[in-house]
Amino acid sequence: MEYKIELVNLSVYYGDFHALRNINMQIGAKTITALIGPSGCGKSTMLRTINRINELIDGTRIEGKILIDQKDIYHPKTDILQLRKKAGMVFQRPNCFPLSVYDNITYGPRVHGIKKKAELDEIVEKSLRATWLWDELKEKMKKSALSLSLEYQQRLCIARVLALGSEIILLDEPCSALDPITTLRIEELLVELKKDYTIIIVTHNMQQAARVSNYSGYMLMGELVEVNETSKIFTSPQDKRTEDYITGRFG
């Protein structure tokens, strides 16, 4: 089987601090993988390393490889801008630009060179429909994105990534600023998006991992302790540490 994303002996350092330790993981196309684990274990670092946004921090260094579609994304010849387009990120806090709804969504396509109004309009409609925002927002294209509710803003951030034409969506605790009901709606949305996209979601919420994901990985202090089908992780974890964490969290 060919994997969409493969992490091969991946280590990440912040200066001398060893934040990800020799991670090996394969992720199939059109699946949702949840990363769980206590705060500070390296979940965000992992996502940010896949988008290559992490290297903007001074002193970061990686060892090992990340393959996307069998290509090493840290190869010197990699086009970083195209990579970031392919693997878009959604952050913890909704972080819309202080621009209109329309300009937020078209930001990505525009920086990648799409200029035609008709083409942009089509992208906007498509990504807003995919995130169930179209009916609500089609009359409010010129409204400032920051005037929307947090849920809508976060969905808009997802739409902004879809508009890029990403194939992979990396979500870093996307629901932590939202209430339980809106959280459920975002989860539903993710399950729907799985039909077309490969999704990795970081969450500290066990129930969320159990509800949305096909696969789950448990991380602890920079190590990927265990990764397996979600049902197996939650019912019969192989590693004692995973079991302790899950029973602790559920119990």
């Binding site: 946004i53 970031r84 878009g88 952050f91 972080n95 990505g108 920086v111 990534v161």
Partner: peptide, 25 residues
Amino acid sequence: DYYREVSLSLGGTKWQTIVKVVLPS
């Protein structure tokens, strides 16, 4: 800073980020 980060994470170049996000703000 997160404006810059989002723009770059979407594949914008540094200059695009400055012109389209930083300067308007």
